[in-house]
Design a binder for these strands. Structure first.
Lengths: 229, 229
DNA sequence: GTCTATAACACGATAGAC
DNA sequence: GTCTATCGTGTTATAGAC
């Protein structure tokens, strides 16, 4: 599976400022990948990019902001990379499985570094928190992908559940990502196996909602999720 | 509800070293509570405790380790605080609700600071990660509480599900804690409301397992959880 | 507005003496 | 076990140049 590269995405630079901004980001991401987040200093990023430390801070308010920029990039790459499968495959199970697997491929180069990302994101006060206002665009973009997974599929569901489903699938992905971050097996084999088991299970769970006794509970669950949003 | 205090728990010091260790911890927790984790420096902790910075590091390998020590304390206080309700109440719903509510009370003084705890815990490389070997004792202790919730209750369940249930309830608590960390409402009103809605819903979900069509899916779910443990 | 160079500061962490 | 001194790094400040 071919996915867009960092260069593909960052090549849109036009003005000199934009070029510098992207030079700093791509340099930072390369160093994060090569040495890890903790061992990469702002001084090293600036030196490698051939700019001053002050200039790096001119474009990115903090080291964390470089990580936030990476996350936005990742979302964008994922969105582009899933287009083929969303266009060609109509069955719900392979659609969902494909979207999750492609995420693994897009994020693969940064597996090491991803732990640090999670760390920062888990802080409610961080702008990277999945629940923060600042990360809302990235989260909305991610939920939108799952909305497409549902919309374009052959899945038959009651309307209210169908409306909530994209957010639920986003939560499933968060779970997969959490597992992935901790997965130290070769080629994240365990995470791939997890996806292969989780997706059919989600499908079966959704089909259960046709049973009358289940519907009432599911409605309560949907109501609960709506109320805490 | 009366709960044990920090002093109750830390007063077991005998040797001089133990006293110093606990002095440093109690001082750190006081400052974390008063100023937050980020604004409390290791220098301030050492000064307030009347020891040197080096000495603080002699007992706690890092600032994060002070947080880990707090978490262990919290677990211990929770374990003690739930004893009355586990001894007197046999119905599953109030047992579970009580255990979750009491956790809120025990943790309340550290609500602000708790966000930072989550942040550190989310890093897979951190000793505080809920999946790390070092935090295994605290996690096991927490799961043990939920094992007691299930064991001593009137809940009727198939044996295999009953075996997995404590870990599932621990996951539910993680979810509640995640919500609590982000809850900025007065007196964490929203988290309390969440518990009031989640617990009966869990109860209803468990009862659904009596429906034959549901059983197969639940068995798959239990198998999945076992496989990733 | 974009960028450089350098210094300074705060704080987590460590080294090594006693 | 305890101390003082020091280091490394994120971040900010200063003082400008084009």
């Amino acid at each position: 599976m071919e996915v867009t590269t960092l260069t593909d995405v960052t090549d849109g630079a036009t003005t000199k400022g934009e070029q510098t901004r992207e030079l700093i980001l791509s340099t930072a991401l390369r160093l994060f990948r090569e040495q890890g987040y903790g061992k990469t200093t702002m001084r090293a990023i600036a030196t490698e990019a051939g700019v001053s430390v002050g200039n790096a801070y001119y474009y990115y308010g903090s080291k964390d902001h470089l990580m936030q920029a990476y996350y936005d990039l990742l979302q964008d790459q994922h969105r582009v990379a899933v287009e083929p499968i969303l266009a060609s495959e109509k069955r719900f199970v392979p659609r969902l499985a494909g979207v999750l697997r492609i995420w693994l491929e897009v994020a693969a180069p940064y597996h090491e570094f991803a732990g640090t990302f999670f760390k920062t994101a888990a802080d409610p006060k961080s702008p990277l928190s999945p629940f923060s206002d600042e990360s809302r665009p990235a989260r909305d973009a991610s939920v939108e992908i799952f909305r497409q997974v549902v919309e374009g599929s052959d899945l038959k569901l009651p309307a209210d559940l169908r409306t909530e489903l994209p957010e639920l699938l986003w939560l499933v992905q968060m779970g997969v990502v959490l597992f992935w971050v901790h997965d130290q097996s070769d080629d994240v084999r365990r995470t791939k196996a997890l996806i292969d088991r989780v997706v059919p299970l989600v499908d079966r769970l959704l089909r259960l909602t046709r049973i009358p006794g289940v519907r009432g509970v599911v409605n309560d669950l949907v109501g609960l999720i709506r109320s805490i949003k």
